[in-house]
Amino acid sequence: MIINLQGKTAIVSGASGGIGFAIAQGLAASGAHVIVNGRRQEAVDEAVAKIGSNATGYVGDLGTANGCAALIKAHPHCDILINNLGIYDRGEFSETSDDVWERFFQINVMSGVRLSRAYIPGMKEKNWGRIVFISSESAFNIPPEMVHYGFTKLGQIAIARGLAKTLAGTNVTVNSVLPGPTLSEGLEKMLKPEQEKTGKSIEELAADFTIRNRPSSIIRRAATVEEVANMVVYVCSEQASATTGASLRVEGGVIDSI
C-alpha cells in the first residue's frame, strides 16, 4: 500500500516529541506538509530540522482559547488535523483539585474541540478532510490513580464519534486512536534511573513496566511511537475513506474485550 498525501496540509498539536513527532514525521514522509506545534522554540526547531522541508514549526500553547485562535490565524487552512496535545499525571481522586481537573480538560479536550470547530468548515467546503484524536486505552481502563486523565481520554472518543456523525455523507472522517504503554521520551526518562541501576536496556525495562502496570497486554512490551504513528498515517490516507467514527486501538491488546 502506497500512501500519498501530497498537496495536503496537516497540523499536529504537541508534535515536538513523542507520539506527536512520530506522527508528524510519518505524514511528512507520505508527502503532506506538516505544521509542527510545540510550546518551546528550541524543541520545535529541532523537530522541524529532523523532518525536513515538508515541515513548518509553530510555537504556541494550544491549551488555551487564545493559543488556538493564534494558530488558526497563522495557519487558516488544514486538510488533516491531529489532536495529539495532551498531558498526564498521577493524583489521588480525593486530592485532585478543581484547578487540576480544569487544566486537564482545557488541554486534553478543549484544544481538540477548538481546532476541529475551526477547521471543519474548510474541510466540508473541499469535501475532504481527516481529523484524528489521540486518545488512550486509559479511556476504557480508567486508571484509579488518574481518574481525571482517563475522563479526558474518554471525552475525546465521544467527541470524535459525535463529530463523525455530524459529517455524515461527506468525505471528511473523524476517528480516535488509542495507544497503550508506548516507549516515548517521557517513559524513557522515567525509566532512566532504573536503567542506570540495573544495566538493563530501556526496551527491557519498558516491557517490565508494561507487564507490571498493564498485565493484560498481549504483546508484552511497550509499543514504539512509530507503531502508533503508522495507524494514524493510515487513517489519514485516501485508502481509509470508509473508516470514520471509530476508536482504533494500538495498545497491544491491553483492553480485555473483543
Rank of each mutant, 00 (worst) to 15 (best):
T9Y: 13
T9Q: 15
A10C: 11
A10R: 11
V12G: 02
G14L: 03
G14Q: 07
A15V: 01
S16H: 00
G17W: 12
G17N: 14
G18K: 10
G18P: 12
G18T: 10
G18N: 11
G20M: 01
F21G: 01
I23C: 00
A24D: 00
G26Q: 00
L27F: 09
A28Q: 07
A28W: 05
A29L: 14
S30I: 05
S30W: 06
S30M: 08
S30H: 12
G31A: 15
A32M: 09
A32Y: 10
A32L: 11
I35Q: 04
I35F: 04
N37A: 11
N37Y: 12
N37V: 11
G38H: 05
G38R: 02
G38M: 07
R40A: 09
Q41P: 13
Q41M: 13
E42N: 14
A43F: 11
V44Y: 09
V44D: 09
A47F: 13
V48W: 12
A49T: 15
K50R: 15
K50L: 15
N54Y: 14
N54W: 11
A55R: 08
A55E: 08
G57N: 06
G57E: 04
G57S: 03
G57L: 07
Y58L: 06
Y58E: 06
V59L: 03
G60F: 07
G60K: 06
G60T: 05
G60I: 06
D61S: 11
L62T: 09
G63V: 04
G63S: 05
G63P: 05
T64M: 01
A65I: 13
N66M: 13
N66G: 12
G67H: 04
C68A: 09
A70K: 15
A70M: 12
L71V: 09
L71C: 10
L71Q: 08
I72F: 00
K73S: 15
K73A: 15
H75D: 09
H77P: 10
H77W: 10
C78Y: 10
D79I: 01
I80Q: 02
I80V: 09
L81M: 07
L81V: 06
N84M: 03
N84L: 04
L85R: 00
L85N: 05
G86T: 04
G86Q: 02
D89Y: 10
R90H: 15
R90D: 15
E92M: 13
E92N: 14
E92H: 12
F93G: 08
S94T: 12
E95S: 09
T96V: 13
S97M: 07
D98V: 09
D99F: 12
D99V: 14
V100C: 05
V100L: 13
V100E: 14
W101N: 03
W101I: 04
E102M: 13
E102P: 06
R103M: 04
R103V: 01
F104H: 10
F105T: 11
F105I: 06
Q106C: 08
Q106E: 15
I107S: 07
M110G: 03
M110I: 03
G112S: 01
G112W: 03
G112Q: 02
L115P: 00
S116L: 05
S116P: 06
S116R: 06
A118P: 10
A118C: 10
A118L: 08
Y119A: 00
I120C: 02
P121M: 07
M123N: 02
K124V: 07
K124W: 02
K124E: 11
K124A: 00
K126L: 05
K126S: 07
N127E: 03
N127G: 00
W128M: 00
W128I: 01
G129M: 01
G129V: 02
